[in-house]
Nucleic acid binder design. Structure first.
Lengths: 104, 104
DNA sequence: TCACCTTTTAACTTATTAGTTATATATCTA
DNA sequence: TAGATATATAACTAATAAGTTAAAAGGTGA
């Protein structure tokens, strides 16, 4: 599966988008993430591994804990590219800017 | 299901993202969209209805045809809001702009 | 009305996903 | 080393998704 495919699949889950929102405020251990959900710890562990395999988050063992954090560029990059390719208004804006720059 | 939930679910399919890309270049009938895929026409019809129910595209009957087109603002809007909420770099950029504007 | 064309809906199958509990692995500390 | 804590993996179940073909619905025009 291609990288954008994995990203969009990862974003399809509300739980995973919530995890991203938490991690966007700073790294957390798997356990702390799991506490915030009304769901078993293994379930959250699986969600984390899906996010990681989409390269949206990183993972680092710290002693007996495992810390996760946002992979800063991949999400914004993938979505920005997609918006630019697929949204007519954003293409229009881009064209406007091009026009402005051409007349600079 | 909330509107952003529907949007992200709709985007989870490669086929549906391809349909959006086609429609972003201009409206097409259901049949013309279906021709571009190696898949039955009813399958495409279902994909179109999922995109429509996420408010990503509009639908209009024209005689015996049904024309579909991009719903210009919903996709960009939803994704931009999400990026802004969830991507640290975009928050950083936003904060920079705020700082710039404050000093204007 | 009838034949034809376009699209949607229905019924079904198969594959995938999201959750569960139980178990294994890794690390810390007494 | 043993026991406790943190996390991941395995095995399983139930719900959902994506495709198929067949049939229905909407619309055209002789």
């Amino acid at each position: 599966m291609s990288s954008p495919d994995k990203v969009f699949e990862a974003l399809a889950s509300t739980t995973r988008r919530r995890i991203l929102a938490y991690l966007s405020e700073g790294p957390l251990t798997a356990g702390v993430v799991a506490e915030r959900f009304d769901m078993s710890q293994p379930a959250i562990s699986k969600h984390l591994s899906i996010l990681e395999s989409a390269d949206l988050i990183w993972k680092k063992r710290e002693g007996q804990f495992v810390k996760y954090g946002m992979q800063a560029d991949n999400l914004g990059g993938t979505l920005a590219k997609f918006i630019q390719e697929v949204c007519p208004p954003s293409r229009a804006l881009k064209a406007e800017r091009r026009a402005e720059n051409d007349s600079d």
